[in-house]
Design a protein around this nucleic acid. Structure first.
Lengths: 110, 110
DNA sequence: CTAATACATCGCAATATTACGATTAATAGT
DNA sequence: ACTATTAATCGTAATATTGCGATGTATTAG
């Protein structure tokens, strides 16, 4: 049906999935990488670095802002985007929790 | 158009995005968490733990296998799934590279 | 051989995502 | 006020994803 049954899963699993979506498209990986490396910041510069139209880049930025992992400060007529560090760290922790889980027990059926 | 222009991005960014997709749905987060914590392993047990039909769970498992982050060993009549550790570590490294990038330079326009 | 069990796959329906041209909104400079 | 610049949003189209009932496949038990 294309409708994720979010309400059936835990808050934590839903949030982890949402944070992962920020990284689940190569354009968004590229955007986050450029912002994290401080190689670009202004929307127009991101458009120059990416093989996508301005409208499409703007849409990806909107989605990243919705998730909260970036923020945009308007500096007319430009908008300067940057990583929103608290959420960036939230993502790091959320994935870290998963990655650590495998180390807890080494026995099991497989 | 709904068609990601993958060929226009780097191999690395595409792979990071693909690995992120493994975590980009709450059902898959739950599956990976259960497998990593060794709380379940057999497909049927996963179905019992999740609010989804057997067909849907099987489909998520197929996608996770396609990405490579899990593997399934058949143990007739069951199939035992587990984390594929090399790819699990690949994901850890891929995200780690991004998370570290922000620490390189603290100056910048924002 | 037959039935039961466990899982994969098919086919379908519905929603979500990706992409972009065109337009709009806001501001700066003249 | 007029124009240029920058970015957001609208409208539309196409592909992708999610979900499940039904069916198929393989293996085991009897």
């Amino acid at each position: 049906m294309g409708l994720t049954k979010s309400e059936e899963f835990t808050i934590a699993d839903n949030r982890t999935a949402e944070l992962a979506k920020a990284f689940a498209h190569p354009a968004r990986v590229a955007i986050l990488r450029l912002l994290a490396e401080r190689k670009a910041c202004v929307c127009g510069d991101l458009v120059d670095e990416l093989p996508l139209s301005q409208a499409t880049v703007s849409q990806h930025l909107k989605e990243l802002k919705r998730i909260g992992i970036i923020k945009g400060e308007i500096d007319p007529p430009r908008v300067c985007y940057c990583i929103n560090e608290p959420v960036w760290e939230e993502a790091q922790v959320a994935f870290g929790v998963l990655f650590e889980a495998i180390k807890i027990q080494k026995q099991g059926c497989c």
